[in-house]
Amino acid sequence: MSAFPQPLTGIAAPLDPRGLRDNVDTDAIIPSREMRSTGREGLADGLFAPWRYTDVEARTPDPDFVLNQPEYCNAPILVAGANFGCGSSREHAVWALAEWGISAIIAESFAPIFRGNCLRNFLLPIALPASVVERLGGEAVTIDLAAQTVSAAGETHDFAIDSEAKRMLAEGLDPIDLTLTMRDEIDCWTATDRAARPWVYLESQA
């Protein structure tokens, strides 16, 4: 796995140039019908399919959609409104964004499952007030994860991220490997819990 690029500088693509769009759901980011295989690859083609193509089947690009425009098609940063990534828990939404080349999303807020999925894929979700977010679309933005700042057009804004997530992103850590180093503590806890809550522990059926 790869760590979050440090620092990241690039154009921030406004998902909707007319204003911040709230409640962008994961069905819009990647519709279920675009999840054609059981793996996590090959999803970028379906990213934002309903908005990106005028004819989804023929894959005819809609020139009005931001990621189809030459100045934004390689943007590593996406800008959106409140509750970004709501709806289905499908991690395919994050896999599709990452495969397309998005490394960070700046939004007013994020839906919780989507935010967790971002962190597990080293894609940085940054929540900032709407008044700040709406000025970032179209700007060259620098994100400094270590300093927890977003800079653009001579302004710098601090963002919050919990220390665990920050460390995971900065160092490109695999959480499963990290947790497995605590196996003894987990085993010890489980033994105690088994005595206290025996109904939790089931006999194998398979």
């Binding site: 996590r40 828990s89 499952i113 665990e164 997530a165 947790t179 196996r183 987990i186």
Partner: peptide, 23 residues
């Protein structure tokens, strides 16, 4: 009881735990 992504499902199955900030 709550929804998670595939990576977190792997974490839960392999380790019996999840690493979480308290909501």
């Amino acid at each position: 009881a709550w929804g998670i992504g595939s990576s977190e499902a792997e974490h839960a199955m392999v380790t019996g735990t999840l690493r979480l900030e308290k909501p």
